[in-house]
Amino acid sequence: MRVKPAVVACAADPTPSNAQDVMSPEVYRLSVVQLLPPHGCAMSLRDKIPSVQAPTGAPLSVMRLLALTVVLYTFFVLYMKGALAFELFQGDVVSYWNDSLTLATPYSTWCRAIRP
């Protein structure tokens, strides 16, 4: 399951020189990792997985993913609170808050308001 040793070996493997051109760096790296025998170099990618396709279009960067997640979350808060006037502080949420104010053990007072 660990990938570190195999990734290090990528630089020396005899994979076709255009492999990186036809697939994204991540697909290329992971393909090589999976194909790499424990004691030697990778076999030809085309021999093993001839039809592997690179994802077209720009892949999401991590920062873009997180920014998009925050935007979606904010949009949904506005939708639920603003457009639907939904009271978020109800049910289990109130139980959790009340339990946090005391030293009483939690759990026993929960589950009184069941979510959909």
């Binding site: 990938v3 994204s24 991540e26 697909v27 992971l30 990792v33 999976q34 994802p55 892949p59 999401l60 960067s61 991590v62 873009r64 993913l65 998009l68 997640t69 979606l72």
Partner: peptide, 15 residues
């Protein structure tokens, strides 16, 4: 790390 292609796109679908 599990080797899924387009991991960030799959993560957005998870989100």
């Amino acid at each position: 790390e599990a080797g899924i292609t387009s991991p960030r796109e799959v993560s957005l679908l998870f989100a």
